[in-house]
Design a protein around this nucleic acid. Structure first.
Lengths: 244, 244
DNA sequence: CGCGGATCATTTGTCAGACATTTAACCGGA
DNA sequence: TCCGGTTAAATGTCTGACAAATGATCCGCG
């Protein structure tokens, strides 16, 4: 546990860092109440606004929650997966949309991780997962579905597949991929894609999952990866042509 | 893109949310300068400290950076993988250490994701990756290595394996697993583990990677998973006995 | 005319104090 | 005993001010 010794010129950043370290190292335990803002200001020899800025930084990371009123204050937050999902998705989306990650790289990462869920999902998927997937298959078959709705159904379908693995840590990790990357990939490919192709592959995945046939699910996913990759490249080529 | 319509009683949280939405939706582009704090305070009809709290929230997520002086201000940050690593690791660590994630679940998730990197790593690993792994293998063979150093070498070894896949998006996702979960798992098992066993499996992984033998790497990883799982359960049983 | 240094304006960082709002706990009366 | 008002503590917000950093500007000198 090294301390962050990197000249943090900012007082509020430094204070936030110290409290964060205390939480991570376990010196502050879950649901423990931090000293009041006034006390913290005294302890750190800074003003209350500075302390507040530090606390807001921690609140933005869901490390603490605050409560008003008597016996209120800042409490160490028990971090839940749901809290972390939002941040995960935001970060993944931004990384993809403004970093120099190519479509190919994102596609490869997404399907590699999705395939990692397959063996567990085939073993553990229950009726509820299959039902969720069936509902989305039906939605995707409706011809008057908007592109946006088709995309969100796509997300829900893959989400169900991932959740079928029955491992919350895996679901958390995949949240960034499925709900961050997948929508962006859809935004790129939706002009060129064939819903029929995608539906058919989704159908294969579903059927194989029903049969608990791990290899077939993996193959269908790989097929979907190849198709998505082809679409992405096609769109990018078209763009380059237009910009000539 | 729905707006967050969930009664965020907090002014600074609401303002941070609005700016965040603007960044994610692309209305604010990378390196664009936000209005000064005073202007933002006017626009949102709040005071400057409130605006500052909102900006600190965004800074905590690396969405903006600030600069002092004339022509300074808050700028939309180009999110880099390195910036996101830290948060990813913090979050993974906390999720594991204070949430109700069992050792088994964490172990399963970690190895599932690590195996997902294997096909790519066997295809793309270069001399530098192998060299990094060889160095760590040598370190791990030193009998006078402290437990802490052995653990950090373990992390570096698996890190090299993951990076061998040559996919930054995958490396980013795995950072949370390898640098967050692995150390915690080591903290649990280090009392019971046999370095010889681990070294041997690491050796198998390395050799198979040299031969570009994907299946053997996967098998060795699965073997390591079984061993780790056994250790974890053993430690937990021992704990329960002691607490009787 | 060119250039270097002093000055200035702008912007974030920090502080002090005040008031508003929320909430739990306390206390007194029916 | 229970109910309701009062009170105190804590966060949320505002005002105003000064410090510090930093780029731009201007002036004087060679």
């Amino acid at each position: 546990m090294k301390k962050s010794s990197t000249i943090p010129a900012d007082l509020s950043a430094r204070i936030a860092g110290e409290i964060r370290d205390a939480i991570i190292s376990g010196r502050l335990i879950v649901d423990e109440r931090l000293p009041s803002e006034a006390e913290l200001a005294n302890q750190f020899k800074v003003s209350r606004p500075t302390v507040r800025e530090a606390l807001k930084r921690l609140a933005a990371q869901s490390l603490i929650r605050t409560q008003r009123g008597a016996s209120g204050g800042a409490f160490v937050n028990r971090l839940r997966f749901e809290d972390a999902y939002g941040q995960m998705i935001t970060t993944s989306t931004l990384l993809l949309s403004m970093n120099e990650v190519s479509f190919d790289v994102a596609c490869e990462a997404r399907f590699a991780m999705e395939r990692a869920c397959v063996p567990l999902a085939t073993a553990r998927r229950d009726a509820a997962h299959l039902e969720r997937m069936r509902i989305e298959l039906d939605r995707q078959a409706q011809p008057d579905l908007t592109d946006e709705d088709f995309c969100s159904s796509d997300v829900a379908f893959h989400r169900a597949l991932v959740d079928g693995a029955g491992n919350p840590a895996l679901s958390y990790q995949l949240a960034g991929v499925v709900e961050g990357m997948l929508p962006l990939m859809n935004m790129i490919t939706f002009t060129a894609r064939s819903r029929e192709n995608i539906q058919q592959l989704h159908g294969e995945i579903f059927d194989a999952l029903v049969r608990r046939d791990s290899d077939s699910v993996t193959n269908a996913l790989s097929e979907l990866e190849r198709y998505t990759l082809r679409l992405g490249r096609q769109v990018i080529v078209a763009r380059n042509k237009k910009s000539d």
